[in-house]
């Protein structure tokens, strides 16, 4: 959440710590140091990266290729580690 955003006061938010926004609106992608970059020449659409991503941050496009969502990817590098054809490179964000 950016610091410029005006946050609601205590009278405006739900009680009991109930979140008033879906977690998808809470961008967490800025935690990362390295980001995965997919080489689509090498990618075989095996979906290992999609399956292994602990944060569900690699979606499958309509053409069947995976694509990281950098708004939520934390740069853990598991996808690059698991890719059987080494099509994912971790590069400095």
């Amino acid at each position: 959440m950016s610091s410029e955003e005006k946050l609601p006061g205590w009278r405006e938010i739900p009680i009991a710590g109930v979140p008033y926004k879906p977690s998808t609106e809470y961008k967490t992608g800025d935690w990362k140091v390295y980001k995965p970059v997919i080489n689509y020449e090498k990618c075989t659409k095996c979906m290992f990266c999609h399956t292994y991503c602990p944060d569900g941050a690699i979606k499958i496009r309509e053409d069947g290729f995976p694509e990281p969502d950098y708004d939520f990817c934390k740069g853990c590098g598991i996808c690059a580690e698991e890719c059987p054809v080494k099509a994912i490179e971790m590069v400095k964000d």
Partner: peptide, 26 residues
């Protein structure tokens, strides 16, 4: 039950209900 705004901005009862899911105290 009192109502709270859920994560889609809908007013729902403060109760764990699969029909109107909310998260309490995360």
């Amino acid at each position: 039950f009192v109502t709270v705004k859920n994560h889609f901005g809908k007013e729902v009862p403060l109760i764990l209900d699969p029909e109107n899911p909310i998260t309490i105290g995360p």
